[in-house]
Design a protein around this nucleic acid. Sequence first.
DNA 1: CAGTGGTCTAGACCACTGG
DNA 2: CAGTGGTCTAGACCACTGC
Lengths: 254, 254
Amino acid sequence: MTPLDKTSDRPAYQQIADELRYKIIMGDLSEGTKLPSERELSAQYGSARVTVRQAIAVLRSEGLISTEHGRGIFVRRRRRIRRVAQSRLSTEARRMDKSAFKADTINVDYRPSVKVEIWAEGASSDIAEILNIDPGDDVVVRDRIMYADDEPVQLATSYFARRLAGGTAIEQEDSGPGGVYARLADLGREPVRFVETLTSTMPSPDITRKLRLDSGTPIITIERIAYDSSDLAVEVNSMTLAADRYELVYEFHS
Amino acid sequence: MTPLDKTSDRPAYQQIADELRYKIIMGDLSEGTKLPSERELSAQYGSARVTVRQAIAVLRSEGLISTEHGRGIFVRRRRRIRRVAQSRLSTEARRMDKSAFKADTINVDYRPSVKVEIWAEGASSDIAEILNIDPGDDVVVRDRIMYADDEPVQLATSYFARRLAGGTAIEQEDSGPGGVYARLADLGREPVRFVETLTSTMPSPDITRKLRLDSGTPIITIERIAYDSSDLAVEVNSMTLAADRYELVYEFHS
DNA sequence: CAGTGGTCTAGACCACTGG
DNA sequence: CAGTGGTCTAGACCACTGC
């Protein structure tokens, strides 16, 4: 272990973070490895424990480590789920009766599961405008939490005009073979064009809790609008992904 | 101001963060507003300054505020650049002599600029495999920093087989009308298919410095491979975006 | 139970900003 | 210069984990 350079301008907590970061990136400290305790590090570096904690906070905010109360400090890293935008929503995929999310998880050997809640409510002005209905008109809301090996990895909330989806399997937890898009196709409103708008931010405490995020984990927010062949919007889907669990793939032509 | 609830399980620094977060989200504290100083907050809440600093660190890590040494604490928020994947790379866009990045920035009234560095080097095994050349064969590297109103918002590094790009304007800072893709088209290798793979993480200190990121700002990493009409890769482009400055749009068909 | 991380105090000094 | 955020100390007690 390199001792602190007291003459350096670089603050002690940064020097400590630098050294630990280097060891993690170089693989000296590999995934899952337990770091020395805060008190040990404090003694090793001859700094106050608060200073060591500052260094730990830096690395946690970079997503490199996670701390577990009463257990210790550990090096993080997890496999990502590969989400390929086009293939997952293809008509063929539906024929094979794979929901898009389940298809995503299979290629990395995760066991997928989904918890669904469904209700109807008056549409917000944003949603109403997109779905071409009047504000306050009822929409069917499908709210899902997606799990990989029982860990939550994605939240998704879809909105459909109730005028369209009411009385169909879209209002059921099990939306039937091929999922909701197959049901829209049954209604002659098969979605054929999709527009996804992505942003990435740090999560609010609410999202952190729902997705059980470690600190230092951003979220990716995707707003997807699905259009039918008449270019009318049939679904609005607002998704929130744990960024450390996903890799997104888009393909397009010039 | 609500006083701290000493009986609550919720720690003091979280209660302080909660109240300030609420005011920011509700708009009581609007963009750019200066917060009370740490010492003032410390007095107001009857807590040690370190505790107030902990609350401030929470909000900073959520991207809600930024601190400026010697000046104060301010509410953050900035407009995003809308990056539409397909239209920006269309043949028409090239005909209009708009580089993709400049087109992105115009729609939000930013003044775009780009700093370019070019060199040749032996290809890494990853790059070589994609570009279908031997490892160590020379590649032309175009390294760019993109600015919006003189603030860096994106880093991008493109790789081309030197066998292909050598001696062309691709090796020049100014790659000519329509940019490098037009030059590839001149060579009969026009890129027609693009695959973008996205991830989002927290930045390393190096990236934080280069993009002058506030803490609490994730980055989006995009790896793009461009293929010609024979489905051969002609360019590998590795991009790093300041996530708080961007909104990405993808459109596709089922 | 011992050992871990989580929270908190009451100070101190430094470095930067702006009048 | 006064006021700001940045760093640091040397303690203290709490809450959780696992033997």
